[in-house]
């Protein structure tokens, strides 16, 4: 079955000017987002996940810009948008965003109701009583009990988890096609995280949403994502269906990321952690960005940037290990066990 692409990114390059120097935050990313899927973008801090998705709604910080490449949405290249008026056609109405700071994402001086209602009024023809009713309905949808009473309360009367529900309600109230969740559960404790993820899943069904999750928490990913894109140093190094990336990962960075999960740790041994630091993006990156942290890096990894190698129609990775000429490099044992099970099951 060929899936419908809702948003397509082609060779996107995003740069920032910082202290007089230019930093390349996103290095030629291409990505298709399919209708009604949930895609998770994972990667460590500074890998450019947030910057990448913020460019979809024109919310890059003032010192950042799209240097080249395209973002195609509904036949239009929104990467070319350069004024507020154009972006207002996209923001909220087409692509909405949930941020990671529920404690501060709401205006402390306005009632919850008025803040959700603002989005309802902005993106629908509902006014007056009808708008209020719609607002209350949405509040109920995001799991806020007694929404009629909560409507007139202020953010400080809500807990972190409840505020995140309100932030999600605001996004839903815009009636978007795509919902971007930028680390929606990072600031919440674990039990609340699970509730919020459940909520997002059910809203996805009800409103037929396409959801893009940004996270560095692989536990979150396993819970919700159909597909996973692994980002490293401003590039997607591996992308595939969740089970493909989890059980049959091919990129050494994905291996390292998975190996550092506590679930894979041997009893009485310290947790695996990836040595070294990501490359400095002020300089141009030569070869595979992960090479310097990869103990088993090949010589070519330092020379030429690897292309994508296709593992399955839905799974590809940027690593020279997949080249037929590459020597055989074994993944860590834990990953190898995963791969063996995966192949056995097929």
């Amino acid at each position: 079955m060929k899936e419908e692409v809702v948003l397509s990114v082609k060779d996107l390059v995003i740069k920032f000017k910082l202290r007089g120097k230019v930093l390349t935050a996103i290095r030629e990313i291409s990505l298709d987002i399919y209708k009604a899927e949930s895609l998770a973008i994972v990667g460590e801090s500074g890998s450019g996940k947030s910057v990448f998705v913020k460019s979809f709604i024109g919310l890059l910080d003032g010192n950042g810009w799209i240097d080249s490449g395209k973002i195609i949405y509904k036949g239009q290249n929104i990467a070319d948008y350069n004024n507020e008026k154009d972006w207002l056609k996209i923001r909220g109405k087409e692509i909405a965003m949930v941020f990671q700071e529920p404690m501060t994402s709401l205006n402390p001086l306005k009632t919850i109701g008025s803040q959700v209602r603002e989005a309802v009024v902005l993106h629908s023809s509902l006014r007056g009583k009808a708008a209020k009713e719609k607002t209350i309905e949405i509040l109920r949808d995001v799991g806020i009990s007694k929404p009629e009473k909560r409507y007139n309360q202020y953010p400080h009367e809500f807990s972190g988890g409840m505020r995140q529900r309100v932030v999600i309600a605001i996004a839903i109230a815009c009636n978007p096609k795509i919902l971007i969740c930028d680390e929606p559960t990072t600031a919440l404790d674990v039990t609340i995280q699970a509730q919020i993820l459940e909520l997002l899943k059910s809203l996805k069904m009800k409103y037929n949403l396409t959801i893009v999750f940004i996270t560095h928490d692989l536990g979150v990913v396993a819970n919700v994502a159909d597909r996973i894109a692994v980002m490293y140093a401003g590039d997607i190094v591996e992308i595939g269906k969740s089970e493909e990336v989890f059980y049959n990962s091919q990129h050494p960075y994905t291996w390292a990321l998975l190996s550092s999960l506590p679930q894979f740790a041997e009893k009485c041994q310290s947790l695996y952690s990836i040595q070294g630091t990501p490359p400095n993006l002020f300089n141009s990156v030569k070869g595979d960005a992960f090479a310097s942290r990869n103990k088993k890096a090949l010589k070519i990894d330092y020379e030429i940037r690897p292309p994508y190698f296709t593992i399955s129609p839905t799974h590809k990775a940027r690593t020279w290990l997949l080249d037929i000429r590459a020597p055989k490099v074994d993944p860590p044992d834990s990953i190898k066990a995963l791969q063996r099970n995966w192949r056995g099951n097929r």
Binding site: R91, E101, C174
Partner: peptide, 15 residues
Amino acid sequence: NKDYVKLARAKGLNK
């Protein structure tokens, strides 16, 4: 510079 302004922009309010 507060986060709620970021959210307000993301929901499509004009400046």
